[in-house]
Design a protein around this nucleic acid. Structure first.
Lengths: 121, 121
DNA sequence: ACGCGGCTTCGACGTTTGTCAAACTTGACG
DNA sequence: CGTCAAGTTTGACAAACGTCGAAGCCGCGT
């Protein structure tokens, strides 16, 4: 009911559809644009870009919110809000363990976006 | 007054600095995040994502606004506004020729973003 | 010189966003 | 239980955004 090929999986929670025609190769149709734009939008804030980077580069493949928060000068609730935005965009997953919540990058999606931005040929 | 190396040129009009450490390889510092986030933000709207695609995939390396506008259901002034956003983000260049204005992708920047999103190793 | 068509700029509008403080939820530890 | 610490949710608010129509600017044809 939803195709997944190797390292290239779906984007949004729910269905497949939106896959990865290199932006510069042919016009992105409006459906794909609507599906992919939110991911770029989520990365379009400096704090979230850093958060995403910290999560994606976490040595253990995941990182505790308690390790993210002190890296910024903004309130914990704002960090939490940004994390929710990343989650809603399908970029990360979260899991609660004991008192702490861990965030982990969602595989595939970054690859999808990278491919989209890749030069035509 | 601004370095340009092969296919990897600068991002913002004005200076270099922001280059391309694969997001998942090490934490993106706040300066880089602040420099790159606007580009993602610019791509974070469905209309602009399509516009960018149409510009980047233009057969002649450029495309007339008059060919962009009719592809959408929104007013010409809004299209123009979105194009300005893409221009301000350093993603495209524009040039007026006779009565028409042509947009062309700015080389390098897309590559930069793609590299940033590339998996760690 | 004039008008016209293509595009941008300006004002205005409702909506969304980023931020905070305060209230709430969840699990751990006495 | 009672409390405490870690995160999330809620409510509020100013700033930024997406959109439009109207006005402006710039080349071209007549």
């Amino acid at each position: 009911m939803s195709k997944s090929v190797a390292t290239l999986t779906v984007l949004n929670p729910g269905d497949a559809a939106a896959c990865c025609p290199p932006l510069a190769q042919q016009k992105v149709d409006s459906v794909t644009a609507a599906a992919l734009a939110p991911a770029f939008k989520a990365l379009g804030d400096p704090v979230r870009l850093q958060l995403m980077s910290m999560i994606a580069s976490a040595p253990d493949g995941e990182i505790c919110v308690c390790d993210l928060t002190p890296a910024f000068d903004i309130s914990g609730s704002t960090i939490s809000h940004h994390l929710k935005t990343l989650r809603d965009a399908g970029l990360v997953d979260s899991e609660r363990r004991a008192s702490w919540v861990y965030y982990r990058p969602r595989p595939g999606i970054m690859q999808q976006l990278a491919t989209l931005l890749t030069p035509a040929a």
